[in-house]
Design a protein around this nucleic acid. Structure first.
Lengths: 254, 254
DNA sequence: ATTGACATTGACGTTACGTAAAGGTATATA
DNA sequence: TATATACCTTTACGTAACGTCAATGTCAAT
């Protein structure tokens, strides 16, 4: 039942270097060392190695394995759940990266002329700057620093098509809203369609959509004169109407 | 328009160490070095740094940036698409990791008694050993070392439910297949349902499914007497029937 | 005695910097 | 003019988990 590095390595499918390293960092010490200085492992060490490799395959660091897994009062499920959270975080970051790369490819494949591209970049920067100047502080206060930063990053990464789509959405929202207002029913088909457009519009700026936040924004349109004016200049009462329609859409009644 | 490390660092939001490092690896050299040995950067270097940081944010390594991005005949889109592939690979790995962690948590939360768990572990080890002894060499030759190792790992990480599901699938395949054989049409509904079950069964052992591999396995069932026997013992002619049905399912005709 | 397979320790390389340490330079002020 | 300070320089270790030599010792068989 005793074996030396190479046998154990072959048994477990790892290199001898790995075993020496595990000895070095103290995560798996041999049972004893023979007179020639060879590492001799017993069956207890084999089991321990199995466990180490199991958690290693799940992506835990050797440090985590050493500190958590190997201690006697180890809560495997808790450790794994924490690890899971880390992995999900990583995936979220990866998803963002991929989305950014996609956008960049789309933008570059748009074969925009250099001047157009510059103009477009300028537009985007303007959009961000304007938003910052006008509403930056308020939005920061209401939604926290992160939301603003991410919103700005989303705008920066927009492609020209997306940018055009945002502008079209803005116009469509007003159009549909006006028609719905004429119909008079915030629960009606037209009004709800307008709200859905509004949701799409928000999703261009928001990292994650939630009904609560949507309802909150709608309420802000009524409370904040700058936003009220933006809607009411097209049709007095439009901001209130939009808020009511959003509340119905999101199922938020208060 | 000239500046030294700290100004440029503040301008770009990076540390002076980073700039020195970029100088060291040759990705961004200062325009000149003044009499005191200070690094002096010009506007050309600012532009270059912007580009570097842009691609860095997309997750490219400095090496890739240096080799591809900075060369005059650089194809930005190609580089980004390659990078995108790498990112997708990474995400696939992450997804697998997360799935494994989830399975482990589920398994451990199942509060299996220790003896049951050990029994189950033993089963799994048996399954692996049996497979190895019986078909290991052949599968290795046909599908390469990696497929076998990964298949074994997949089995090792199965939860008890999954294991039960695999066994049920095996039985269902035979059942459905026999009924389909009685009906006589490999393109019929029953036969195709059997093939779909077979595909599900394969996905428990395979890392990635492909129609080609599925068709290949089906062909092997006919060519290899051990596999032929496994199916034909239930009903002579079943192996050939399954192969025909699989070929129709996968659209592989030869 | 030699050979070949195995063992040992030591040390460098990997990525993109962070973080000292030890010391030179430019500038404003006491 | 001495000094405080704010900047600059190079050198070098640390990071995670080993891979890959290099130099050298041990064991079994021929």
């Amino acid at each position: 039942m005793e074996c030396t590095v190479q046998k154990l390595g072959r048994l477990a499918g790892i290199s001898t270097r790995t075993l020496r390293y595990y000895d070095e960092i103290g995560i798996l010490k041999p049972a004893r060392i023979n007179s020639s200085g060879y590492r001799i492992y017993g069956s207890k060490e084999v089991d321990r190695l199995q466990q180490i490799l199991f958690y290693r395959e799940l992506g835990l660091s050797l440090d985590d394995i050493k500190e958590n897994v190997m201690s006697p009062d180890f809560d495997g499920i808790k450790a794994l759940k924490e690890h899971r959270e880390k992995l999900l975080e990583k995936r979220k970051l990866l998803d963002k990266l991929i989305a950014n790369v996609d956008n960049t490819i789309a933008f570059q494949e748009g074969r925009v002329t250099m001047t157009d591209k510059e103009k477009f970049e300028g537009f985007k920067q303007n959009l961000i700057d304007e938003n910052e100047k006008k509403y930056g502080k308020e939005i920061r206060e209401k939604y926290g620093e992160n939301q603003v930063v991410r919103s700005n990053q989303k705008v920066k990464n927009m492609t020209q098509e997306q940018y055009a789509h945002v502008e079209k959405l803005s116009a469509d929202i007003i159009e549909t809203l006006k028609a719905a207002y004429a119909a008079g029913d915030p629960a009606g088909e037209l009004a709800q369609k307008a709200v859905d457009l509004h949701r799409q519009w928000l999703c261009y700026f928001w990292d994650s959509y939630s009904k609560e936040a949507h309802a909150g924004i709608a309420q802000m349109y009524v409370c904040d004169p700058r936003f009220t004016e933006y809607y009411d200049k097209h049709q007095p009462g439009l901001a209130v109407f939009l808020r009511d329609a959003v509340n119905i859409y999101t199922g938020t009644k208060k």
